[in-house]
Amino acid sequence: MKQILIVEDDAAISAELTELLKNAGYQAAVLTDFAQAAETIAAAGADLLLLDINLPGLNGELLLREIRKTSQMPVIMVTSRTSEADEVLSMSYGADDYITKPYNPTILLLRIANIFKRIDAASEGTAALHYRDVLVNPAKGTLVRGTEELLLTKNEMIIFQLLLENQERIVSRDALMTDLWDNNEFINDNALTVNISRLRAKLSEFGYPDAIETRKKQGYVLVR
């Protein structure tokens, strides 16, 4: 399980953020003592850091520069500072992403997932995504089993990938919609329903008739 460290001085936000991350299947810890922050963070050994800029007695941007001297851990800046200068500065100090408060929680989760995806892909050479005995190839938009190949449209692949990343967990329609819109597919509710039923039909034809389950009023689950 990936561990995420939250560096945030607002107690309400860090509590909610912890819950959000735990619900999404991450381990979350909150840094409460900002003295010696850089050392504490380095010692914590988290997989990803959510870093605020306005911290008591400390500037997140400078802290990031300090961290980068010893570590290449992924860092997402999460801040209420909305000037472009802050973003450019943070990115130049080596932040992996920059999100302004208030953010859409689903988008924050997507960004975190994207960073982990990128890191995993880099460490394993190629992104080897599997569903049962099928090799998933997002770049080509195909599912491959031996010599058989199933072609998915861009939308279907986005949906399938998000379900796969959250296998055995409920993925809400809103999360699917957010992911699609985040990929510049600005479709409506009907189109989402159509896309899901097409994906179901294709998977069923490919030999997985019950892969996607519907949970009423909650969303969808990709079962193992």
């Binding site: 936000i13 909610e16 819950e19 209420s80 909305t82 408060k101 859409n104 929680p105």
Partner: peptide, 18 residues
């Protein structure tokens, strides 16, 4: 002030989501 008020707004959105 705007930066400050964004914090409770962010908390509220997270609470709604959770």
């Amino acid at each position: 002030w705007v930066h400050e008020v964004k914090l409770p707004i962010a908390s509220l959105l997270l609470m709604c989501h959770n």
